[in-house]
Computed example of a mutant assay.
Amino acid sequence: MTVKTNAADIVAVSIMGQVANPSLSGLPAEPYRLDADGRAFLWPTFGGIVYNVSVGDSAFGWSGDCIHPGVSISHPDANKNRGLNVFACVGNEAMVVTGAAKGAKGVVTGKSGRFSDQVIVHFDEATRRKLAVDDRITVRSEGVGMVATDSPEVAFKSLSPALFDKLPKKMEDGVLKIGVVATVPPHMVGAGAGLTSEGGSLHMQSTDREELAKHRLDSLRLGDVVAIADTDSRYNHGYLRGAMSIGIVGQTDGPRAGYGPGMTIVMTAPAGQLGAYDAPGTNIADILELRA
């Protein structure tokens, strides 16, 4: 169905980042991390050009820690990177402007934050092979300030109007309901709680695999649309009974406690104005035709 928004009044503006190199802090000198059981591990993590993980693939099973599918971009200036991370919206068009892949187009599919303030962009595999670290990518930012005319209490976050129009949705008794693959219960909300909801990501807990399977979360794919129950993300992420948020899975699972698949929050409401219904297979890889 069509939900009327103020899309015609939203400002479209350019933002830019560079392909980010994976990084490790110099101190402590050991590059290892600890998994949920206290064992040291060293796996690839966020950043860089990931050649073999794409939107639509499983969010689980990779030998990596919170992997960003496709390409991660950031800006070397901290303030400008903040602008990039806040204003980029899932579904925005991106374009390579330097290097061997100049002119190639992609799509923003997620964000990560705090320790890895990066924007995640999908490019096809042929383009990824041409890209190099520090290649510049511009994004047509469009979506910040979006309002649904008949659902003014639903706050939109990091969502392009074009993608919102394509998401499965319906209005029932004044409640905007979004079609989702699964619902994350509040006790499974992990890293990101308490932080800003304008950028970055919110992770689900995945250490308890039985609980994960109980809620049909163990087969999530990158790009899946999910609901997060009793979670208010209007200004930051926190528990609020009756609230709901809608997220898009943007990062893979990892072995650390609290760092299951990362979600980019795209909608939220505090008191029943936003709902969800089962819509198996709802994934932006299909909605935006990102896979051959």
Rank of each mutant, 00 (worst) to 15 (best):
D208T: 01
G275N: 09
A155G: 02
L167R: 15
D124H: 13
L202R: 08
T45E: 07
R82S: 03
D218F: 06
Y51T: 03
D253V: 01
A279W: 05
A78P: 10
D165M: 14
V86Q: 15
D173T: 11
S116V: 03
V19G: 01
Q18D: 06
A148C: 11
A88W: 10
K170S: 03
P152G: 11
K111C: 00
R128M: 01
S233E: 08
K169W: 02
V13P: 01
R209S: 02
G200C: 08
Y32D: 08
V226W: 07
E93S: 04
A182T: 09
A269D: 02
A7C: 08
G262C: 09
Y277F: 14
Y259N: 04
L212F: 07
T138D: 04
D117L: 06
D117S: 03
L288S: 05
H187G: 00
T183M: 09
M171D: 07
S25R: 15
G194V: 07
H75P: 02
N236M: 05
G99C: 09
T183R: 14
M263H: 13
M188E: 08
T45W: 07
N6A: 03
S14G: 03
T45V: 03
D77E: 13
D218E: 12
E172T: 11
T98S: 09
G113Y: 07
S72P: 00
K4Q: 14
I10A: 04
R33H: 10
A279H: 13
K214A: 01
V133F: 07
E142R: 15
Y32F: 13
V121A: 07
G199E: 09
V71K: 14
E153D: 10
R33V: 00
G200I: 08
K170T: 03
D253H: 11
V184C: 02
N81R: 12
R216P: 00
S116T: 12
Y259Q: 07
N85M: 03
L288F: 06
A132T: 11
A213W: 06
I246S: 02
P280G: 09
S14H: 13
K214Q: 11
M146R: 15
V180N: 10
Y32I: 05
S141Y: 05
E172M: 10
H203C: 02
R234N: 00
V3W: 10
A227Y: 09
S14K: 15
C66D: 06
G242C: 03
R241M: 04
Y277R: 10
L24W: 12
G262H: 14
V225Q: 12
L290H: 13
Y277S: 05
A7H: 14
Y51P: 00
V189T: 09
D77G: 01
V108T: 11
S74P: 00
A229I: 02
L34A: 05
P152M: 11
A271V: 01
D117H: 07
V13G: 03
L202K: 05
S219W: 04
L212P: 02
T98H: 12
A257N: 08
K170Y: 00
